[in-house]
Amino acid sequence: MTEAAVRTTAPARWQDYVQLLKPRVMSLVVFTGLTGLVCAGEPMHPLLAAVAVLCIAVGAGASGALNMWYDADIDARMKRTRARPVPSGKVQGADALAMGITLSLLSCMTMFIAIGWLAASLLAFTIFFYAVPYTMWLKRTTPQNIVIGGLAGALPPVIGWAAAAHAVPLNAWLLCLIIFMWTPPHFWALSLYTSADYGKAGIPMGPVVWGAKKTRLQILIYSLLLIPVCQVPVFSGLGGVIYAAVAAPGGLMFLLLAWRLFKSQAGEGGAVGETGLYEVKAGSTDARNLFAFSILYLFALFAALLVERLLNMPAGLSL
């Protein structure tokens, strides 16, 4: 890693430190972690449940800060990320590193004190896996980076489940598997219309290494694997009618969008190198559509599980 940032004329504001924690990613992690915790169906003191979710959130934020510290050099080369606090010089790299390490230790320690060793160990492993194998190694070396690295983003529901039940049964790993299988089509769809950026930064994302056509095929293959996995909770006792009503039609829509993307020219020639997540040229709208729908689909699946569990919760049972 090279120190890409220079001190700007203005001192860092509190919002810059919040940005270090990747609040958008953190909100999804909190949501999936909370779903895991509720789906465990074990009685839990509300304060301890809140502390567990807080620890998951802070741990995710710590991973984000460590990632931004290490990736400052490549973030500075991409339009999408160059305004981040470290590459823009608003926060010094050393401060981001210190914040990441401190929050990692505090979140794991608190999880251990409040909940126990299993949830704390899983949280520590998740932070480590995101910061070291994914950020420092996989991201810069292989187009499989987000496939393997996706495990870090998939673990929060397992941590939530472990926090409530002090065990991680198959249904907890099923939630993990859903997010794990969801990650490649989600990120490859994004990379299809931002591949110029990734190429400039030297990150070996699918479209940069394989080209757009093979990436679209990979997205279709992973989508075909993902959608059946998303139906399994209906049969494993984890999801009920509401979940089925979301998972099946949503899955069909996902497959339709993946098929349309496969047949499109997304990522070819002049359809790349855009600045925003949702602003794309006409040739890449199919990639943008799948990227946007994938977020909605994952959110809807977990929201359905959450709502179903809360509706079926016996009166007087706290969480």
Binding site: P11, A12, R13, W14, H45, L47, L48, V51, L106, T110, I113, A114
Partner: peptide, 27 residues
């Protein structure tokens, strides 16, 4: 800005101590 940051860190530490105390009482 450095002073504000120091106050924020101090406040964070106080919150952490209170949190550990409350967790201990609950457990």
């Amino acid at each position: 800005a450095r002073k504000r940051r120091s106050y924020a860190i101090a406040l964070g530490l106080v919150v952490f101590v209170v949190l550990v105390f409350v967790i201990t009482i609950v457990r």
